[in-house]
Write a protein that binds this DNA or RNA. Structure first.
Lengths: 246, 246
DNA sequence: CGGTCACTTGATCGTCTTCAATACCAGTGG
DNA sequence: CCACTGGTATTGAAGACGATCAAGTGACCG
């Protein structure tokens, strides 16, 4: 029952002495605010951890004792209604920061989709870090702003877009995660299941499936193995995504 | 065509010399981060302004040159689709802070609903203020986090709640803005029109009207003058809002 | 193989949208 | 004072989109 495991970061993942120095997401995460010289202190502040697929590592309404910096893997953040209806508010990848809370409790839950490796920052220690490195706070503010912009875009999607437009928007957003350079056709893997996509887009699994099938029939995308997507007609998808054209 | 007007804050609103000192929202806004002794500098940084009803004062995709601190009135923030569909992402009241942007351009628009008085902070000057007063950045981060939590709640509403649940949630949220102390029945005025409510809740005007009528018929709320709401059965509304009970 | 689980597909149903008409209210000018 | 006007709100009837229900498929695994 202990699928979520913490361990001293100095031992993880391969017993390296200066794990932060070689961290693949350091330069793209909030940790970029800490100068090279202070990486030891950063390493002493963070606690490495792993969440196995399906494991919840942040629980709505629980005391917000820690912040999480995702290293690798994909997590889903979500909120539930009492009767079980679920809204996924976002997916977190390597470099993302989780756990910003207003009050002393989390306002959402988070689960690992595949295996998620993360660094956990106890709240108090992160606060000290922010005090000593104002750039850290700056970085967090920038991150929160980014999240806010994404959330507003998602509200537009949830409130005003048709199922077809939602799926198109989702595929486009996912395609933007692919490192630039690879040219058309863009190709990527969806780490999440159909149910996750449905709960993220505010529709049902069946509608996700049917819409994907339709897009495939129209030669706008290609779907293989249910989780691999290839975007054949990016222009068409872009039009669909914002309703420019039926 | 100049319904949005700026003027030196030292002249506003009554020619006071230290306007920040008497600002009614100072203690509840980001300005609370600035110590009394430095209010003069704060006043020199901000530029007072007024937006008349219906006037847009932040335009999506425009260069994000300023941040806004709302003093009084209510504004709507929104995003549009090319064909005119609108999603209102939030309403801003006195004490709220607007304009957080990732890139150099705004990611949303904002319009005054009634007459809105605000303080405008040119981006560069605010940055200097944040540098000299780290508490300012801390305050902004807290504000952004609050917005983020609200956005997640709204995503749950837009993605997974029925029209009835949306309206109930909206009325409850509005009732929470009423200063505590007044007890049941809670009574308040909606500054926004039906169309704004509809575009905020991701439904149509007609559905808003019909749902309000139904709630009124069921003696859960009372509606007078189309803009005054009285909550008669708060418990029932709370149940409705999260779908605990049909 | 029999089990589970995720995905897919089809048929029916219901909520909310759309379209259209009417009511209401404040402001304006005869 | 009162008809006129524009905007918002309300109400009714018809239709559509997506949800729900139900069944079937395929992959993986003990």
């Amino acid at each position: 029952m202990n699928a979520v495991m913490d361990f001293p970061i100095v031992l993880a993942p391969l017993g390296m002495l200066r794990p932060c120095a070689t961290c693949v997401v350091r330069r793209t995460s909030v940790c970029d605010a800490i100068p090279e010289a202070d990486l030891a202190r950063l390493g002493a502040t963070a606690i490495g951890g792993i969440a196995r697929p399906g494991t919840q590592f942040i629980a709505d309404a629980d005391p917000a004792t820690s912040f999480f910096n995702i290293i690798s893997g994909t997590a889903r953040m979500y909120k539930l209604l009492p009767d079980g209806r679920r809204q996924i508010t976002g997916f977190a990848n390597g470099g993302n920061f989780l756990g910003l809370a207003v009050s002393d409790t989390y306002a959402f839950s988070a689960e690992a989709i595949d295996t998620v490796r993360y660094c956990r920052f106890p709240r108090v220690r992160l606060r000290m870090l922010m005090r000593d490195f104002p750039r850290m706070e700056e970085r967090l503010l920038k991150f929160a702003s980014t999240e806010l912009v994404a959330a507003q875009e998602q509200m537009l999607l949830l409130g005003r877009k048709s199922a077809r437009e939602r799926v198109a928007s989702f595929l486009l957003a996912r395609s933007r995660l692919v490192p630039a350079g690879q040219r058309s056709p863009v190709h990527f893997v969806l780490p999440m299941a159909r149910g996750d996509i449905a709960d993220y887009l505010g529709i049902t699994i069946e509608t996700v499936v049917r819409t994907l099938k339709k897009l495939r029939d129209e030669r706008i995308i290609e779907v293989t193995n249910t989780s691999e997507i290839e975007i054949c007609d990016q222009a068409a998808l872009r039009c669909l995504a914002n309703g420019s054209h039926p």
